[in-house]
Write a protein that binds this DNA or RNA. Sequence first.
DNA 1: TGCAAATATTAACAATGTTTATTATATTTG
DNA 2: CAAATATAATAAACATTGTTAATATTTGCA
Lengths: 196, 196
Amino acid sequence: MERKKIQEERMKTYFIQAAKEMLKAEGIKSINVRSVSYRAGYSYATLYNYFKDLNDLIFLCVRDFQDECERSILEKIKNISDGKEKIHAITKSYVEYLIEYPGIFELFFLEKMNNAGNKKEISELIYTFLDRICEKHWNVCKEKGIINSAQVEIKKKQLYFLIVGMLVFFENRNQPSNYEEFISLLDSQLDNFFEW
Amino acid sequence: MERKKIQEERMKTYFIQAAKEMLKAEGIKSINVRSVSYRAGYSYATLYNYFKDLNDLIFLCVRDFQDECERSILEKIKNISDGKEKIHAITKSYVEYLIEYPGIFELFFLEKMNNAGNKKEISELIYTFLDRICEKHWNVCKEKGIINSAQVEIKKKQLYFLIVGMLVFFENRNQPSNYEEFISLLDSQLDNFFEW
DNA sequence: TGCAAATATTAACAATGTTTATTATATTTG
DNA sequence: CAAATATAATAAACATTGTTAATATTTGCA
């Protein structure tokens, strides 16, 4: 039954679309079985005909947001020259995107995955996101001979841990306590990181 | 009324003690108004005679855990010589403590503070924890002339962001997916960090 | 058209946070 | 000491949310 599959997928997108809009605009706190379903135009119980549970649905938004986030970053940094500078710009752009949409930051890094459907696959998508976008430029650095392979493996991860740590303190603990201070801290940390 | 105050404080400790035990043993997921109150030996409504709400009570555990954590770290690293090595050992100990008690990690860095009582004060306690324990040893490094003041300010924070980022991925996203890999990653990151 | 299967919805339940009203206890005062 | 009053503890009740089961509705097709 081809038609059945198509219709089912279409139904899913209605719910996912609703969840995405709410995540971007209001964050995870605004999402519950009833609110998402009503925004999708259905009763709350209908959600369970298409998703194992709410957690499952929420994490299906990750893929879409990653695509959108990647496009947003690439558009912003297209004029930066390849290599180290580009990694720097991509990283800053990524942080800015996550600051602009705190709900997406929560989804990527904080929300409990419980028994989400493709838990392993999705968490790996998140863990490798920055590396995937930067891969080419790390290779450029290696080719230029300004850093070696072993160092790259360490510094790639270090960079991701650094920005996630900063974001956790800012979003969850209000440290630093305003946006300007945060950006200034981010810049000083990134400048320092890229001194090699 | 001095007696009244004493009694009130004693009552509070019953609830806080119950919450602490549960946090350490089972994590935040095990805590709710009813479970904490029953463990403290009272009805769930009694909790509201002593705390604004559950969130408030939970964050009153932070101070105690910080003290305990500090004692645990200092005991473990007492034989390491002062300075850079000590900062390294303290940091590793801190991570090990947070891995041993994931509920405390959650409390320190992930749990939403909503309208917790001394929100500002508590989040600052958490943000500055590592710096406070390491302060003396950063000063030793400065005195030895192996690093300057400006660098210290940046690297202190960088170190904290690094470990919190790692812990977020490990606890929330199961990356890396087992303890041994995590420790190996931690060691490689710390070794790299302390190369100066 | 009428029936079987698929789909959607309503009703209901369980868990949890919180408030209100009531009961039990302690303290003060005449 | 006993009555009046304040204080503390509790039970009952309500709201929100996730989830399931039973019921109603729609749809595809013989």
